[in-house]
Design a protein around this nucleic acid. Structure first.
Lengths: 257, 257
DNA sequence: CCCAATTTGTTCGTATGTATC
DNA sequence: AGATACATACGAACAAATTGG
């Protein structure tokens, strides 16, 4: 039951935007799932009575939102697509590009989310999952000797948190943990913060994660929460220290990205 | 320094997508701010050596992400635009449309974020801000007698939280609080949960918010955090109760949106 | 391997709408 | 009101990609 017509001009949406909205609500109303094929361009042209260019722009709008993907050739067409986490992260990142996020802002969130994640996972992980976490930890069993190693360890420690998040049954928590870690990574990389070898951060991080694993294995949510809370507070403190040192040395003024 | 050419075809991005990416990184590299004007369509056509349609699709992609807005007429053109919170909310909402978010998932986040917000605001609010919060509270000073009133109070109580979030200096916290409240609202509305008059939710909510205001005024972050934590736990409990009742009565199966 | 069919992708020319002066 | 400058929309043709014979 495709809509034959479109509201002419109640608001200030351009026609492609109207078409995109129409298609979107049409898909949602029919409960179409990822993989389902939308009508072909030609069909849409007939259905909406609009030019090819207009329809194509509408498709592009939906594609930019990550809601559809299109393929050429026979059996091709436009298909409903599940918005990927990467796409969602990028789109939300655009929003914060214009907001002046600070290290403090991000840690205020991490400092409550990460412990909550740890607590909710305590006692629920399989031995395979715990082993996977331990495997990541081996990446920074030794202190970094070069800037390159420091960088790799930084990435690995972020992967530890990402992996932990992956094990949560809560999609919202999963996304937020990974998103905040990503934002933090973007900021630190853009400011070159990770390039300062920080032995204390390495040592404390390793210790905290080892104790966390034990608490997770023993199924002690209270301990898991406390450990990750301390870990976050400490990481925050050390990063602020680095930030201060760095801004005092190099940067004329604070400024994100 | 506009890019004269574009990478021919390293990955599988369509040309409009490539152009959109090129324009985006070009804007970011030059540090252009909202309000700045991009080159006109004709200029972009010359610059990239592509047809009008291709350029237009690229602009649509950026527009869908909320990064630009275009106006017709003299002095018109395509302008850098700050991604609005509404747009960001909608785009992120698309992601969770495909994830099966439950009431529990959302409350697991709210139950840690809202208390954190309250604690960080304690003692920092002006008398005018406190008065604004009290003003919203008057909307549900009396128990609802009709379904319509129940609905209005539900909205008002969400506005209380949104207003509180607005007062935070942390853009990330602000967004997340409002986003989670929004998602919760979407789910409850789509399931008709708010339509069950719930006198206990009303009474406890009013009491909690009054005590919260007092703690905020007195600058007691510990009390503010504890109060909102209890409030969230209680709201969660009551909503789960409603959900159970409702699904047992009406719904054949669980299913979001 | 090539050829044909199908579907999206791209181009160009032209015309229309809209806001400013 | 008219001229100008800009985005917006249309239509027809052609190009590229993919699939199957």
């Amino acid at each position: 039951m495709p809509p034959a017509t479109i509201r002419s001009s109640p608001d200030r949406l351009s026609r492609p935007q109207q078409v995109a909205e129409a298609i979107k609500s049409w898909v949602m109303a029919n409960g179409w799932r990822p993989g389902d094929r939308l009508p072909s361009e030609t069909e849409l042209i007939e259905r909406f009575g609009m030019a090819k260019g207009t329809i194509r722009e509408a498709i592009r709008i939906l594609e930019a939102q990550g809601l559809v993907k299109s393929r050429t050739g026979p059996g091709g067409g436009v298909f409903v697509h599940q918005v990927s986490e990467e796409r969602a992260t990028a789109l939300l990142g655009n929003y914060f590009y214009f907001q002046h996020l600070t290290i403090d802002d991000i840690y205020q969130i991490r400092i409550v989310l990460e412990p909550e994640l740890a607590a909710s996972l305590a006692g629920t992980l399989s031995e395979a999952q715990l082993a996977a976490l331990e495997a990541v930890m081996t990446c920074y069993a030794e202190p970094a000797r070069t800037v390159e190693e420091e960088r790799e360890q930084h990435i690995a420690s972020l992967r530890f948190h990402a992996l932990l998040a992956e094990m949560s049954g809560n999609p919202l928590l999963r996304f937020l943990i990974r998103f905040t870690a990503n934002m933090l990574s973007d900021i630190t990389v853009s400011r070159g913060l990770y390039s300062l070898p920080n032995r204390e951060l390495w040592a404390s991080g390793l210790d905290y994660q080892a104790r966390l694993l034990q608490a997770l294995r023993e199924g002690d949510p209270v301990a898991a929460r406390r450990i990750l809370h301390e870990h976050m507070k400490n990481a925050h403190r050390l990063m602020r220290l680095q930030e201060t040192v760095l801004t005092q040395r190099f940067l004329p003024e604070g400024g994100i990205i």
